[in-house]
Amino acid sequence: MQPTAGPGPSSEALAKRSDRTELQLRVLTCERSLLHRADGSAKWSQGQTSVLAAIYGPRLTFAKKEHPETCVVEVLVRPKTRLPGPTERQTESLIRQCVEGVVLTAMHPRTAILVVIQVVQNDGCVMACALNAVAAALVDAGIPMHQNFVSVTSALMPGASVVIDPDLAEEQAAEALVCSACTTCRSWPEASAAQKGPAVLAVYTRGAMPVEDYLTLVELNRQGCERVAQFSVMAAEKSLVGKSR
């Protein structure tokens, strides 16, 4: 039986995982350079959730918006249906802060980078999926960055159990959600001393939870991010190695 999206916190019964364990991520897929006119683009999917991100820039912007010393980051989030609302504004602001945190904005003063995100399919974890799509699109566009990031969501379910990468039904049944973005750091053997674990770049929470549970979820996300980072590196290498001889 395929669980369907429940009406809210009452749909506890539907929130039982059938196809994977509580600490298992869904299947990740990443496609790059699919948009012809954007400078960089990527489609990131986690199970049924799928988000398309496009990067335009660095390019000229309106004199009103430009900054004399840095590159301005603009983010637009488009939901699958309807017009963007306050939820999208909030996602935009989180993504903008993450992008500004990793891009070397001083390299291209007086310009703007436009990030457009289109939700293709929503089956939970849209924010994490959007962040991953943006990170992949930034690499595709060749924007100068001093770090990259990945993102994972985990949820506190009724009965104090935790699940990672919840789908829509689980997300609606959850008491609280924590979505965090972690920086990734890769070091080659010649610089192995610089190796650091993932550091938290941004955290978004929804719902109320005790502090201990919050810390558990953040730690769970950190571990999940390590796994997502492995995939993201593999996907990026694949897209670059086949193309440069």
Binding site: L138, V233, A236
Partner: peptide, 28 residues
């Protein structure tokens, strides 16, 4: 360095800079 000829991603630490000598660095 072992990273020469390999695919590198933004933010990768490629090698630790030696105390002496010159390393010439280009694009990226």
């Amino acid at each position: 360095t072992s990273a020469v000829g390999k695919v590198v991603l933004p933010g990768d630490n490629l090698l630790s800079l030696p105390d002496q000598g010159v390393i010439r660095v280009g694009a990226g």
